[in-house]
Design a protein around this nucleic acid. Structure first.
Lengths: 196, 196
DNA sequence: CCGTAGACAACTCCTCCGGGTTTGTAAACG
DNA sequence: CGTTTACAAACCCGGAGGAGTTGTCTACGG
């Protein structure tokens, strides 16, 4: 467990992000202060600034972290359905929907819950390419690699996955019944987009 | 259609809604007060309450009014492309997107602009069936009637149009390039959903 | 060299406090 | 009927104050 690599530098960032996620889970984004993160990790406040830059960048880093987890989940879901694209993509949709529900960070970022609206919303609206575009590219790559039998061009995959992401976010903001029901509807849309 | 019923009652409501829309366009939702509407229409404040019930119901009525306009636009767009479903639906998408941009009421309702967030957002999130479900039903009926050659079952039309609406709202909240570019992408998705 | 501790101005946030406005309802009036 | 008037409760606004935070800079120490 003890890091062979530099024990302090790169690992500190991860611990700071984890601490921030903990504080958010417990008391929300407003309760996240640089000083609290420093104390929780056992480091000075300036190290936090050196490592994260600013609070806005912390928000961005947290979103990117969340995005990575999301892509990883999608990867696992398609791996569980190797030979049926529609099943795999639909499972990824349903699983992502359930995982996102009750995720405090996501609830804050989607503006529903009050809190750092000014810190998180810009990441999804003003500069979507930062986090959303990144997710689209990664997921499109995952799908295209896992399901080569679905004959879509790279740009078609990009369009399909962008629609996939938009519908996912839409169902988070405006739930329509259960996740079960939503993914049931999505199965039809996904089936059409992937060529039935 | 409508009898030449009392000239005052039903017409007053329409004038009140129009006045509210004017005030919103000029000074935003916060500037809309029941007293101002009464003065602008030349009626007493209580008549406003008798006619509209409350401010929350006024918000709902305005959204329904906007929904009707939207459905009417869609109707016109599909009528302009009688023999090509994908063209008609895509045109409806692009046209709706452009019409919604710069529509003060929509900007408020979608939460981006500050303002009556507490009055409008619930209409799209807490009780989506009130306004959104209504729009889905109406648009699905329009599409199904205009393009019978697209062989979708009524429930398939409902699913497809719900996706259509969700993607429309998504592009309003998170624009991706120009309306031109967005509808270009949507053309592919629509083509797939309607059976290429 | 890297991280710490301390100090610092600017800023945000919260609270309290009035005062004005608005909401929503109810009565009396024409 | 619709209008006027009255009214309690809630809401919004601007200011004053104070605590807490942000972000930066400098001096210190292993």
């Amino acid at each position: 467990m003890k890091a062979v690599t530099p024990p302090v530098p790169a690992r500190t960032r991860e611990k700071l992000l984890a601490a921030a996620a903990d504080v958010i889970r417990a008391d929300g984004w407003a309760a996240v202060t640089m000083g609290k993160l420093a104390a929780q990790v056992g480091v000075s406040r300036q190290t936090v600034y050196n490592e994260l830059g600013s609070k806005a960048e912390l928000a961005k880093a947290l979103m990117l972290r969340e995005t990575d987890r999301f892509v990883e989940r999608v990867n696992a879901d398609v791996a569980a359905h190797p030979d049926h694209a529609v099943d795999g993509v639909t499972a990824a949709f349903r699983h992502s929907l359930e995982a996102a529900r009750g995720n405090p960070l996501l609830e804050i970022a989607l503006g529903g819950a009050q809190g750092g609206r000014d810190d998180f919303l810009p990441l999804l609206t003003s500069q979507p390419e930062a986090v959303l575009g990144r997710a689209v590219d990664a997921v499109a790559a995952v799908f295209a690699r896992a399901y080569p039998e679905v004959r879509l061009t790279p740009s078609e995959w990009a369009v399909a996955v962008e629609a996939f992401m938009r519908l996912l976010l839409s169902h988070l903001v405006q739930p329509s019944g259960s996740a079960e029901h939503a993914s049931g509807q999505m199965r039809w849309v996904i089936g059409r987009m992937l060529g039935s």
